[in-house]
Design a protein around this nucleic acid. Structure first.
Lengths: 230, 230
DNA sequence: CGGTGTGAATGCTTTCACAGCC
DNA sequence: GGCTGTGAAAGCATTCACACCG
């Protein structure tokens, strides 16, 4: 399968999330269009990229489409469709079509993440429910203040910042959520990069310079993006 | 000035933030390239869109470029360049060029925002420092639990969710940071849309259907975007 | 030189429009 | 009829390459 272009990829990420909150069994591109605001053309093209040739005549099977996206995007543990009481045994084993390219990696381990900086914002991310039913698992938190790492409660261990490199290496952590004070953002990002982290979600107001993908989600950045969209 | 295309706009938002944390007086496209990872071509094109024909031969004046971006993006109160002691009276009145399209709106009031949902994450956004020196000002917080709205401390008033519509109208609030539980996200988004809000920053895991721009910044969404970028 | 600004060319994405299928 | 999948066209964004400037 050829590499999926960036705009399509981002839409597919959203589409996967949308599918997992969908109740119906089937869905058409026109429904997706009304739910997301994207054009039908673009939706059909995006889905065509999956090379799942299964959506004939009356829409796509929600679960099948969802799984196909997760596979194409290399999302290991997929966020399962929401199960409200009525769901039944709908698709627990989503009949893998003949041409299936070996879906064995599907139950793969979740991607390991860590939270760096446990101020108010970082501490808020400790909430376990956020990552439930997602392909990610937070396995460590870090803060410069030993006080915080000892007082805060979480389902995974918290470490002093000095152990950043060693814990990342030991646990094989892939992604970091960065929520340190702006002033130490760049230095910390440098340390993360050197530790072999694959990507950073940046909650700080600082613009990071790093040799790896950074997703900026600082409140001010997000608002500014909206602002100039008028 | 013609409308700025979306990819350029997003880069310019980041560039503005980068400039405001810059210490030097001048900057060249090659420096920006090394700091951001974007190509020189794209940077020069983006800046050319500003029609600020002022960057001859040895780079751009940081403050001037910053102001030009803020103007083009309709950012009222710009985030000022960081003032480390040495900054001096650099550019407090950024010589508005002759052709200037009437920069009178420049000292306009900050854009008003509100935080909807004051759980751990929403409450973390109450931190005033986050929005300091930004073109945004949070003027209200909302939560379904009166307990929370009464116990939490902030520099602006907190209201029960029932007053959402009335307060938004009265205060003329433009943007909302949505941090309610996933289950009530869509309903709340509908209320926000009806209240005339111009854009939503979505911290929930839910995919929103709304007739206005939504910026998705849920941790899982951000991580997934990174993930499939390998 | 080292740097910007910009036509022209390239490469991507989106849209159109229609064949094919249920 | 309603819907998908896909060539072909149109529309955008990025890169190239070079004139021009301090």
């Amino acid at each position: 399968m050829k590499p999926i272009p960036e705009p399509s990829r981002r839409r597919l990420v959203t589409l996967a999330a949308l599918l997992s909150q969908q109740q119906t069994e089937k869905i058409t591109s026109v429904t997706i269009a009304s739910l997301t605001g994207w054009s039908q053309s673009v939706i059909r093209r995006d889905i065509a990229l999956l090379e799942l040739r299964a959506g004939v005549s009356n829409g796509y099977r929600v679960s099948q489409l969802h799984d196909a996206i997760c596979e194409a995007l290399h999302i290991g543990t997929a966020s399962e469709p929401v199960s409200t009481s009525q769901a039944g045994m709908k698709s627990s084993a989503a009949e893998s079509r003949l041409e299936g390219s070996g879906t064995k990696g599907s139950r793969a381990l979740a991607h390991k993440c860590c939270i760096v900086g446990l101020g108010r914002l970082g501490a808020a991310l400790l909430e376990a429910s956020i990552f439930e039913r997602s392909p990610f698992r937070v396995v460590a938190g870090f803060d410069a203040s030993v006080n915080r790492t000892e007082v805060l409660r979480s389902t995974f261990p918290l470490y002093p910042l000095s152990q950043l490199e060693s814990v990342i290496a030991r646990e094989g952590i892939e992604y970091a959520l960065l929520a340190v004070p702006d002033a130490s953002a760049q230095i910390t990002a440098d340390r993360l990069a050197k530790s072999g982290i694959k990507g950073i979600v940046n909650y700080t107001g600082a613009v990071l310079t790093a040799p790896l993908p950074v997703e900026n989600v600082a409140p001010v950045t997000a608002l500014t993006n909206l602002l100039s969209q008028s």
